Computed example of a mutant assay.
Amino acid sequence: MIQLAIISDIHANLIALEAILEDIEKRKITDIYCLGDLVDFAPWGNEVIALIQNKGIPCLLGNHDERIGFNQPIIPLVHHNEEETFHRNVAINLSKRTITAENKNWLTKRPYQLKLSFKTGDAVKNILLVHASPRSNDEYIYETHPNQGLINMLPDQTIDALVMGHTHASYIKNESGILMVNCGSVGRSRETDQKATYSILTISDGKVGAEIIKVDYAIEKVAKAIYESEIPDFYGDFLLRSEVTYTEVI
């Protein structure tokens, strides 16, 4: 049996990442992969990058990482109101100033996709890891997305499992023999339970299975650190679901 832990969308939340890694260690899973978005919206962008590096975790380039690494302009999102647009600009510009040049350079070296192949018995199972979708680094694939449309995005039809992040909303479904997993968000969940979230893939007896794991962490401590930083209070309120409205697009 082979087990993989897939994490994504940490968004500089070191405390949530540490809780997830502790849970993975307790389960004795040694193969960990990250789908990206290490930076923005919490105070520990450099520390999160350092921990991912120190653990030797293969990591994709998330859309937030791409913006910071390559110093791309901040494009307003049509689904954000004026208030959220303002706070988003402040938070991302703070990352642009505070993420070190060395870490920015490291981010630019991350791949967009990673294809993994594992042999169990006589069967070879192929798993495709992407940040958002197989064709775009910032496309939102929610659980309601048409299955056939997603299958048509695959670079080939030998994929047994597709694992995504980006939406901060986890799910597992199966279509035409392809397991589709969104592993949720470690540090900025949009799910009602607000827990740090990741997925475990199990490859055994020629089959690939998935499980969504939810982990408690000191969310109030993270919000307090945001309030004490230059990051807008909006993002601490988001974690506490306090006096803030937010949209489906991030």
Rank of each mutant, 00 (worst) to 15 (best):
I20H: 02
L61G: 01
D40G: 07
Y217T: 04
N152T: 10
D160W: 02
Q157R: 15
I15C: 11
I178K: 02
E211H: 05
V249K: 11
T247K: 09
L162G: 06
N103D: 08
S229L: 01
E84I: 13
H168N: 08
M164F: 08
G69Q: 05
N147I: 14
E47G: 12
A101W: 11
S95K: 04
V186M: 08
T245L: 14
L240T: 13
L201D: 00
Q157V: 10
A196I: 08
I6V: 12
G206P: 04
G149W: 09
R110E: 02
E25V: 13
I203E: 00
Y142I: 13
F41N: 08
L240Q: 15
A225L: 12
R110Q: 05
I15Y: 13
N54P: 02
N93S: 12
I7S: 00
K55N: 09
K104G: 08
M1D: 06
E82W: 15
S204W: 11
D205H: 12
L51V: 03
V48Q: 03
S204V: 12
L116M: 04
I68E: 04
Y171C: 09
V222C: 00
K173L: 11
E84F: 14
A16C: 07
A16R: 00
H79N: 14
P146A: 11
K104N: 09
G69W: 04
Q3P: 05
D9K: 05
T192H: 12
S185F: 13
V130C: 07
V249P: 06
D156E: 13
I250H: 12
V124N: 07
S117Q: 15
Q194R: 15
I99A: 00
E83S: 09
V181G: 04
I75Q: 07
N137G: 08
L179S: 06
G36R: 01
I24S: 04
K26W: 08
K28I: 07
V78P: 07
I49C: 00
Q148F: 10
F70H: 02
S95Q: 09
N81A: 10
I141R: 03
Y112L: 05
C183D: 15
G45W: 07
T202M: 09
N182S: 08
G177W: 14
W106S: 06
I226E: 04
R110M: 04
V163L: 03
L114W: 03
M153W: 10
A225H: 14
D237N: 14
H131Q: 04
H64S: 00
V130W: 01
E248G: 14
E66L: 14
L35K: 04
N182W: 09
K115Y: 09
Y217L: 05
T202L: 07
Y33G: 04
I92V: 15
S170V: 10
S199V: 07
I127C: 02
H145N: 12
G209E: 11
L21N: 01
K115V: 09
I127N: 00
I10W: 02
K104W: 12
D193R: 14
V48F: 04
I127S: 01
G121P: 00
E84M: 15
N71E: 10
C183A: 13
